[in-house]
Design a protein around this nucleic acid. Sequence first.
DNA 1: GCGATCACGTA
DNA 2: GTACGTGATCGCG
Length: 360
Amino acid sequence: EIYEEVGEKFNINSSKQLGQILFEKLNLPPVKKIKTGYSTNEEVLQTLCLIRPSLKKILDYRQLFKLESTYIRPFPGLINPRTGRIHTSFNQTVTATGRLSSSQPNLQNIPIRNKFGEKFRQAFIAEEGNLFLSADYSQIELRILAHLSGDPNLKKAFDRNEDIHQQTAAEIFNVLPLQLTSQMRRLAKVVNFGIVYGISSYGLARDLGISQKEAEEYIQHYFQRYPQVKEYLGQVVKKAREKGYVRTLLGRKRYLPGILSSNRKMREMAERAAINTPIQGGAADLIKLAMVNLEKRFREEELEAWIILQIHDELIFEVPERELDETRRIVKEEMEGAMKLSVPLVVETKVGKNWAEMSS
DNA sequence: GCGATCACGTA
DNA sequence: GTACGTGATCGCG
C-alpha cells in the first residue's frame, strides 16, 4: 500500500530513500534537517501526516518492523540450551553516570508503553511455583533532587507523599490542586523531567511544541516556586567549572572535559551533564547499594528469592510463592532504607506470574 | 567486514 | 535537555 501511495517500490527501512521519495519526488516540506539530509523520524512523519494522512502507514510499518527485528526475531536464538532461559549481561563499567547497562540482549528496554508491549512481556514467565516480584522507586530522581537542593517546596510534596507532577502543576500555574486540568499536569511532568535533564528553553519548547519564549517563562516560573533548586543547579555547574568534575551521592566522579569549552554547544552539553549526573548517578548508587544489601538479607533470612533484572529504578525478583510475603516486606524495607535522605524513599511493589501481568 | 548514522525501544 | 543498546542501511575498504 505504501508503494502504491508514492507510486514506486523502495526500501522503507532506508531513511535516505524515504527522504528522497517524500521531499524530492512528492515535494513535501522538509520539516527538519539532519547532518546527512532530511530527517524522517517519527516527529517529522507525524507532522507530514497532516498533509498526507496516508503516511501513517509508514509509521505503523516502522513500529512493527522495529518490534519484529529487535524483540521477536533474535530472542529464540538467545535461549541458553543448558538453562532454557534467556540471560542478559549486565555491564558495570560502561555508562558515564554509574548506571548499569544491559546487552545481549538488552533487557532494560523491553517495550511497555507500546500497544504490543504487553504481548512481549507475557513471554517472560516465572518458573512453576515461582512468581515475579517487581519493586520500583517512585520518582527517585526528583526525590534525589529534593535531597540535594534542600528546596523546602519540593521536599514538602514528598514529605506529604503527594502527586509530584500535580503539585508542580499547582505551583507553576498558581492554582488550587482541584482546579488543575490533565493538560496542566502533563505539562508540569515534562517540566519536571526537563529539570532533571538540565533544562534548556530550546529542549522544553521542542518537547511541548511551544515557542522558546513560552518555554523560558515556564522555567522562570518553576524556579520562582522552587528557588533552592535554581540555587543548587547553579552551584553544581559552578563547582563543575572549578573542579572539572561532578560527584554522585556515594562520591563517584564524572569528569566533564567540555565544561570550559569555548564552543557553546559543547559547554552547554557539559553543563547539562553536570546537572544530570549527580541525580541519575545518585539513583544508580542508591539502587546498587540496595541490591548488595538485599542479596545479603536473602542469605541471612534463608530466602530463595533472587534478583533477575535491574532496570535503573526498578528491581525484578523471582520468588517461590510461599516466600512472597516475607520477601516483599524485606525488599521494600531494604530498598526504602538503602540510604537516609532528607526526603522519604517510596518503593512500590507488584506481583505476577509473568512480566506483563503484574498487579499490586 | 567495519564504523558512522539514523531511528527507536527503555529509565 | 540525561543515560543507554540494537537493528538496518550505507559508504568505505
